[in-house]
Write a protein that binds this DNA or RNA. Structure first.
Lengths: 336, 336
DNA sequence: AGGCGCCATGACAGCCGTTTTCACCGCCAC
DNA sequence: GTGGCGGTGAAAACGGCTGTCATGGCGCCT
């Protein structure tokens, strides 16, 4: 057994044991701002003492003194949504690569709860804030800025304000999807948007309009839940109103459409060609597998972290990595 | 514009402005261990001063003095897996209800990285550790215990050690699933396990064996990836070796099986009845919808947080909430 | 009615563990 | 002999909590 968990060893303990001052120990631990003689450092001195005591520097004390915690707050709409989950994982990894810890909170699509989380994170003295919001909400970055904490939005733009935003290039993604479906001979390509035009989905809808020109009967709307998309699909098929080619704003909706089509006896891609715009891991394993314009989540995460930590080099703050088309079966490819 | 972000207001600032001592302000802010006269508290005094200065107590300083950070570390195998994502969300909520913040890290199924995360969290002086590991790894809880930090495993048990564990009742879940499939007239129920018997999946396999008695040709194995399950399914169908009723250890596998069956032209539930054992949100929207023995994620999260924070009341540390059978279509119900 | 002691408040100051400034001390080279 | 210079140590923050002590008013007892 190692010694009882009486109290963790402190820098003072190490210093005493090594017969040096706390300053020297500090210099050794972080290759300090000042040099330390190699002899002092190793030979029967600080390094040895630290090892013997199993010393682990206390980040809280360090944070108090240095006014930087090495912690970044991540406000997430909903970690159980695979799209956000995947994004969160990439953000956490990107942050970890910069030696930051990630404080995560789920806002559950509520603006109030998002606000509350920001408040708590700010009290915890985070070094920065990453906001992944589903539907806007007030610009929490303003509050963060007032506290001197940088903030960046990912995926979605706040309702107002001029905070840095990192999002995929929706125009390019939609254009790619439309072009691909047209190459399958579909001259009319419908679009399944969200219930309203807030957030990235609104931009995607706008991009679609500019790509194909709006025709009222080919703009569909429904909630993001799979069940809603499935119900809409069954209804459209029953009324004979289902267009032959469709782009969905999100994978969730696409999966719902697939489920609805299956239930209604409509074959995909035979009777309906579908392309989605997220590209979550889920999309690879639907039946049939979804063709998607995949969002470069990893690149977005890295860019967001870069913008947050290296200052918003504002010229490039909104630069967007390109979406890539992943061709699977739901568009009509490879199925003869 | 509010005042420049020169420096956040401190308790001392508030005290000075209110004409009181820092002690009094502290007492007011946390309904302190000592009472404060109502007049001092409100009337043109501390509360007013705090509001005017937009004072926000510094959690770092508080943590240093009180030796408790109000932060719990959550080590997750992979946030982009919907099962873990959903679990993470419930854990974060349960912790939030107890006024704790959640430091999240993805181990990406690597024991080394898991170890590294625990190390970092310990240095950050977390008040507790929740470990959601996919495949064991060393018992990191021992290290936490040595540092005086409580830890609890969720979903999976460590390879060794006697740390508290919260997991679903796999025996009951498997039993429920087997019973249900038998009620559909299937006397032989196969089981799709993982590549090896580590972790909860191993327990599920064992539970299945004790429920039906092992028959070699009805124990299947494959990796957890959907693609692997799909490939296995296509292969079995092609060889005419697919059993008529199957329980899968995870939703991911079940979804892969569905995809594989669809590709191979095998109808579900007509030619194959499937029941899965996770019950993630995904399972509700497959085609056909999956019947699952749903794990009570929310209850597991709450129990884990209770065990962690209220001390491992060891008698109940491993008590398990029951899994509930969600009947959908893949088992043969409701499809005629 | 007067004195004593107690309770309710409030103030002071030290402490939590680290970083970092500043001063200091030899020692070597000029 | 003096001016660096590599190395070291004491001590002051950082911001909030809390044990100890001071004070003043009140009630109770005689």
């Amino acid at each position: 057994m190692t010694k009882r968990a009486a109290r963790a060893a402190t820098l003072t303990d190490v210093a005493r044991r090594a017969g040096a001052s706390t300053a020297v120990v500090s210099y050794v631990m972080n290759n300090g701002p000042r040099p330390v003689a190699a002899a002092t450092r190793e030979r029967e001195r600080v390094l040895a003492a630290a090892a013997e005591l199993n010393y682990r520097p206390n980040r809280v004390a360090r944070a108090l003194r240095s006014r930087t915690t090495g912690v970044v707050g991540l406000v997430l709409a909903d970690a159980s949504n695979p799209y956000f989950g995947a994004l969160a994982r990439h953000i956490e990894r990107a942050l970890g690569a910069r030696d930051k810890l990630t404080l995560t909170g789920n806002a559950d699509y509520s603006a109030d709860r998002q606000q509350d989380l920001v408040e708590r994170f700010l009290a915890a003295q985070v070094d920065g804030l990453v906001i992944v919001s589903a539907d806007g909400g007030a610009d929490v970055a303003a509050e963060a800025e007032a506290a001197g904490v940088p903030a960046v939005y990912v995926h979605n733009r706040p309702a107002s304000g001029h905070s840095p935003v990192v999002s995929a290039d929706n125009d390019a993604a939609v254009h790619t999807a439309v072009t691909h479906l047209r190459s399958h001979g579909h001259d009319r390509v419908a679009f399944l948007a969200g219930p309203h035009d807030a957030g990235p989905v609104g931009h995607r809808r706008a991009a679609w309009e500019s790509a194909v020109g709006r025709t009222d009967d080919t703009l569909l709307r429904c909630a993001y839940a799979r069940a809603a998309a499935a119900a809409l699909t069954r209804d459209l098929v029953a009324r004979g109103a289902m267009p032959p080619a469709l782009i969905t704003a999100t994978d969730e909706q696409a999966i719902g459409v697939l489920a609805g089509a299956s239930a209604a006896g409509l074959s995909v891609p035979g009777g309906l060609a579908v392309v989605s715009l997220d590209g979550t891991p889920d999309s690879a394993h639907t039946a049939p597998a979804l063709t998607v314009a995949e969002q470069p989540l990893r690149a977005m995460a890295r860019r967001a972290v870069g913008v947050l930590l290296d200052g918003a080099d504002s010229a490039s703050a909104e630069a967007v990595p390109p979406a890539s088309l992943i061709v699977r079966r739901s568009c009509g490819c490879g199925s003869g």
